Simulated assay, not measured.
Amino acid sequence: MSQVLYTVLVALVALERLAELVVAKRNLAHSLAHGGRETGFGHYPAMVALHTGLLAGCLLEVWLADRPFVPALGWVMLVVVVASQALRWWCIRTLGPLWNTRIVVVPGADRVTGGPYRFFSHPNYVAVVAEGFALPLVHTAWVTAVVFTVLNAVLLRVRIRSENHALTEAYA
């Protein structure tokens, strides 16, 4: 895979993220209109910065460090990237108007336990972890993969704690 094709892949992931933000904005309006309350918003700017940094880091490392495409690694990681996108959109479809990039709990809404939520408490974060590790490694951007993975682990610790607290309060 050439650097140009990899750039197209990262651009497609960026477009997918923009589509997520459109869905999240619509769903936020829906949730707030139904009495939803946002919590844990303090870490949200860091999350946006980290995910933006992932995309930028992928491109910068591949282009500036002239990282090679290693087929045995790259093709496997591409499959992981595609699978993580599929899992993310399964989460979005399962949660419907309750899905959001923010932590918003709508009073009276049933806790979702179907779809991928049958298997994991936080399947969207499984997708985020997989994609954050795999996308850079499609083109051997290992520094970006390691840095994102470490920083994302710290962020997810805060995020999941905030989300679990909000869900416990809502469904206790």
Rank of each mutant, 00 (worst) to 15 (best):
H165A: 15
F120L: 15
Y44N: 08
L32C: 12
S121P: 04
V80R: 01
E131D: 12
T94Y: 05
L59I: 15
R102Y: 02
A141G: 06
V129W: 07
A172T: 07
F41Y: 09
L95C: 13
A56N: 05
L151K: 01
A65H: 10
A170Y: 00
M47A: 15
A56D: 02
L135C: 09
V147L: 11
T94H: 04
I92C: 10
N27Q: 14
T149Y: 00
F69A: 12
P123S: 08
H51D: 00
A19C: 12
G40L: 09
A14K: 13
C58T: 08
H51A: 01
H122Y: 05
R17F: 11
V146D: 02
H51K: 03
A145M: 07
F119I: 13
T113D: 12
R161E: 12
V158N: 06
G114Q: 11
V79R: 09
W89T: 11
E169K: 12
P116G: 08
V105Q: 06
W99P: 00
R67G: 02
I92E: 09
M77K: 06
G42I: 06
L95Q: 13
Y44Q: 08
L156V: 06
N100L: 13
L59D: 07
V129Q: 06
G53C: 04
F119H: 15
V13P: 03
W142F: 14
T144L: 07
V70K: 07
A29T: 14
V22N: 10
V22F: 14
L137D: 04
A127E: 08
H30F: 15
P116T: 05
N100E: 11
F119K: 12
V106Y: 01
A166H: 04
L78I: 08
Y6L: 02
I92L: 12
A134R: 00
L135H: 05
C58R: 02
T39Q: 09
W142K: 04
E38V: 00
A72W: 14
S162F: 12
R118S: 07
A24P: 10
M1I: 10
V146K: 05
G132E: 00
V80L: 12
I92T: 14
G53L: 03
L5G: 11
N152H: 08
E169F: 03
C58A: 13
P45L: 07
P136A: 09
L64P: 01
W89E: 09
G53S: 08
V13G: 04
L155V: 05
L167W: 01
T113N: 08
L18V: 15
D66T: 11
N27T: 09
M47F: 11
R161C: 06
R161Y: 05
I103T: 03
T149V: 00
L28S: 14
V48W: 11
R161G: 12
H122K: 03
L9F: 10
C58N: 04
E16C: 12
A14F: 15
A46C: 11
L59N: 07
W99E: 02
W75F: 10
L73D: 02
A166Q: 04
L167R: 00
W89C: 11
A11I: 11
V128E: 15
R88L: 09
A145L: 05
L32Q: 14
I103E: 00
S84F: 11
E20C: 14
L60A: 12
A14W: 14
